[in-house]
Write a protein that binds this DNA or RNA. Structure first.
Lengths: 143, 143
DNA sequence: TTAAAAGCTAGAGTGTTGTCTAGGTCAAGT
DNA sequence: ACTTGACCTAGACAACACTCTAGCTTTTAA
């Protein structure tokens, strides 16, 4: 039931350094329990919480915001609207990221397909000399 | 036809600092032309190239990789397969990001909906006291 | 019993991506 | 003449999120 920092590092993929760092930064709902010798003992709940933090992080939430969220949870009930606000705005942020990424993917896929055509053509004979229509400044190498 | 650094900053959304920085970092296909007085003169092609760099950046390509790509383009024809490689691997990277983000969105949307239920219930009467089933360590506040 | 492995704290160091400052030039307007 | 504003270079500084080091204690395995 109680996990050492090393075990938690293994399970979460965070380094032990990062785990201590996150704790110092106030990202854990409660300051991790300690054994008599001072060593950290993590519960499954701690690991779940960390997993959530990792999801937040990987979707671009800054540590600062995770800390604010953590504080709200730590304060207990009464601020659910604030938590909801924070979550919704992160939701919006993710949605915006998704749209940007999809657009980026569209653009790069287009570039890839142009290069593929060129390369396919070039496999037969090396007749083309620049990436015109894919690279801006390389275009026609002129005014 | 020739744009000042300030105009390019306006058009691209990059700061003039960032524009000079990108140039120093070798992210521009050719070192920007200068007026007699040393001031930069950007062409539309430069702006197009910058727009592409911005797309690369915003989809998580490090400056380092953009520089490598730029170098390939600068070298001229003959390395199209290398460019294609680089582009394809970034394409894969974006795809992976999209999947991660979608998963994150799923998780956070679930949390949001749980909070919404709680808050809706609480609007009538403040009967619930914690975020159990949404927050790990806050759960039942016990062993 | 002793050596390796794992943990601890405090704090320094790092990589990335810019941003800002200092000190100066140049052109235009008043 | 003088101020304002855009531009220049070189280089210092900064935010973010870790990562690593030093110096120490404790646990575990041989």
């Amino acid at each position: 039931m109680g996990l050492s920092i090393g075990q938690v590092a293994e399970r979460t993929g965070l380094s032990v350094h990062a785990l201590r760092f996150y704790e110092r930064e106030g990202l854990l709902a409660d300051p991790v329990r300690r054994e008599s010798n001072g060593r950290r003992v993590y519960s499954e709940d701690d690991v779940d919480w960390l997993a959530m933090c990792i999801k937040f992080r990987s979707s671009g939430m800054p540590l600062d915001t995770i800390r604010r969220y953590t504080e709200l949870v730590r304060q207990g009930s009464g601020n659910e609207l604030d938590r909801l606000d924070l979550l919704r705005s992160h939701q919006d942020y993710i949605t915006a990221q998704l749209e940007d990424l999809q657009e980026s993917l569209r653009v790069i896929t287009h570039k890839v397909s142009i290069y593929e055509e060129h390369v396919a053509a070039g496999t037969a004979s090396c007749l083309w000399t620049d990436a015109s229509s894919t690279e801006g400044p390389a275009r026609a190498s002129s005014a």
